[in-house]
Nucleic acid binder design. Structure first.
Length: 533
RNA sequence: GGCGAUGUAGCUCAGCUGGUUAGAGCGGAGGAUUCAUAACCCUCAGGUCGGAGGUUCGAGUCCUCCCAUCGUCACCA
């Protein structure tokens, strides 16, 4: 793969009726970190997020709020965009399913599936609740002994005409694809889940909903049949395709990674790939399903009122800084199969250990020594002199390896692992300072050339560390880099430049500066009112 | 109920196809140091690897049963 190969990464498009919370932010954040690192590594990145707007509930909520559905969607989509701006996400596009660029593509694509026979008109048999005028799933119906969960009245077995997608026809091919591509569904436990269910066979899925009388015009009509609308899920999935249907974007297809949460795995790992197979399109490289955040040991829920909502997020940002929150979420988040607990005490621990005592302190002590011993400017040091003071370390090799590892891990969507490469580099600087003791050497002026070489090594290594941490903490790391006269790493143009040794120029003014991450007090009340339950 | 996952040091977790004294990070304890954000560096955890039984020369690592927790079962972003 060439270094500047396209890298297309997506998040789900979020249900526009929701209020943005930590869940939406987390999925988008991991995608953001991956997108940012890949950009730094020189890849041609396209990072997509957006909103899913055609659900019936949107119509209801709009009516309740006395506005039209599109006004309601506009208002809420703007909320998501504000939240994502607050989180400093670097998405290249924000797609909304109500946009014409999407709706026309959906129709064209469904029409193609109709033409190939993969979408056909059939009978849907289901449990209908006459009092609520809606169908219930078999599971829900059974749970309530085939009575209405609301009124307790008997459910009716009804048949309705619906368009179906011939999912069953692709089960074997999908299974073969998953078998042949271990990285297609991640983590592995999720892959096994899908494989397990696949073994039980697939049935065709309805992909349309009948238009009821008096319905507001909302949703995408089935091609050539205005008595049916495309089911929102199908509508939504197609965003990954419609967003790149432009001459300058088609190169990004297919996506390297669809980052999602575990609840929507089936649609992304089964229905979507099968649709693509039916269309003769390439499949995405990876569907990565992370788990959920819980809070202080409890599931987040409306009844508990303990959601980490935008207000809470904002409170954390105000007290500890956005990048500290990003770091905590990225490194402690539920990328595996189990849910992660958002615990304030843990946040403080991680903040102090990794950021205040880690990269923040390392930058501080190195900058301070340079400022103090060399009149506030980077000293002149030759590469040979610097190498001679490695104290058993081959710094250029170390930093080079760190960059290689980080890019490789991020390529496998091991976001936390990739970011730790940067932190480990800064930890190594701390050990190096301890081993070489430049502060002791500096007491004798004769040693200054040696001290200069040591501190130059420190500065160079810290710059590489900051480059690697930048995708997680773009603001703070840009600040750190500027203190050593270096630009933001996304302007460097490639992985080689990230670890280029000798980047810090002699004569660059250096001052100690404010603490990047002031030490946090764990005894303080959690910000944002906490979550007293 | 079906299918599946997990249960390893105080906490969060690594431990591939079974093989010397079971590992990491954080927290905690002790020591060293002073350039730094009372930071950094070094050392220290004696955890019957959920329970019982079994296979094996040998099991955290395979099999059976049990207990606990969790996920999922298709229209839920």
């Amino acid at each position: 793969m060439s270094q500047n190969a396209p890298y297309y990464i997506t998040t789900p498009i979020y249900y526009v009726n929701d209020r943005p919370h930590v869940g939406h932010c987390y999925t988008t954040l991991v995608a953001d970190a991956a997108a940012r690192l890949m950009r730094c590594a020189g890849r041609d990145v396209f990072f997509l997020t957006g909103t899913d707007e055609h659900a019936e509930k949107v119509v209801e909520s709009a009516a309740k709020n006395g506005v039209t559905p599109i006004e309601w969607a506009d208002r809420n989509a703007a909320e998501f965009e504000r939240a994502f701006a607050l989180m400093n996400f670097s998405h290249d596009d924000f797609i909304r399913t109500t946009q014409e660029r999407h709706t026309t593509v959906v129709q064209a694509l469904i029409a193609k599936l109709q033409a190939s026979g993969d979408v056909y008109l059939g009978d849907y048999v289901g449990w209908y609740d006459p009092s609520q005028e809606e169908y219930l799933t078999e599971t829900v119906a059974k749970e309530h002994e085939y009575k209405s969960p609301v009124t307790g009245r008997e459910l009716e077995k009804r048949t309705e005409q619906n368009y179906f997608f011939k999912l069953s026809a692709y089960a074997d091919r999908l299974k073969a694809h998953i078998d042949a591509n271990p990285g297609f569904i991640k983590p592995e436990a999720r892959r096994n889940e899908v494989l397990g269910r696949l073994g039980q066979g697939l049935v065709d899925v309805p992909i349309s909903r009948g238009v009821k009388e008096g319905d507001v015009e909302w949703g995408i009509f089935m091609p050539g049949d205005e008595s049916h609308r495309v089911y929102v899920w199908i509508d939504a999935l197609i965003n990954y395709w419609s967003a790149v249907q432009a001459p300058d974007r088609i190169k990004y297809w297919p996506a390297q990674t669809h980052a999602i949460a575990k609840d929507i795995l089936w649609f992304h790992a089964v229905i979507w790939p099968c649709m693509l197979m039916a269309l003769g399109e390439e499949l995405p490289g990876c569907v990565y399903a992370h788990s959920f955040w819980i809070r202080e040991g409890r599931k987040m829920s409306k009844s508990l009122g303990n959601f980490i909502d935008l207000a809470t997020i904002n409170a954390y940002i105000e007290r500890y800084g956005l990048d500290a929150l990003r770091w905590y979420l990225l490194t402690q988040g539920p990328m595996g199969t189990t849910d992660s607990d958002f615990v304030h005490a843990k946040f403080i621990e991680v903040y102090n250990a990794d950021l205040a005592n880690g990269i923040g302190n390392a930058a501080s002590r190195v900058a301070n020594m340079i400022a103090k011993y060399f009149d506030g400017a980077m000293p002149e040091v030759t590469a040979q002199d610097a190498a001679a003071q490695g104290f058993g370390r081959d710094w250029p090799a170390l930093t080079n390896q760190a960059v290689t590892d980080a890019v490789e891990k991020m390529g496998a969507f091991d976001v936390g692992g990739a970011l730790r490469c940067g932190l480990e580099l800064s930890n190594e600087v701390d050990r190096y300072v301890h081993d070489t003791q430049p502060f002791r050497l500096a007491k004798d002026p004769d040693n200054l050339p040696q001290v200069a070489a040591i501190l130059t090594n420190c500065a160079e290594a810290l710059v590489v560390a900051a480059n690697l941490l930048h995708p997680a903490m773009p603001g703070t790391m840009t600040n750190l880099l500027s203190r050593f006269g270096r630009p933001s790493p996304d302007t460097l143009g490639g992985a080689d430049a990230l670890s280029a040794w000798g980047a810090v120029q002699a004569g660059t003014p250096i001052e100690k500066g404010e603490a990047l991450f002031p030490r946090a007090d764990g005894d303080e009340e959690p910000p944002g009112g906490g979550c007293e339950l």
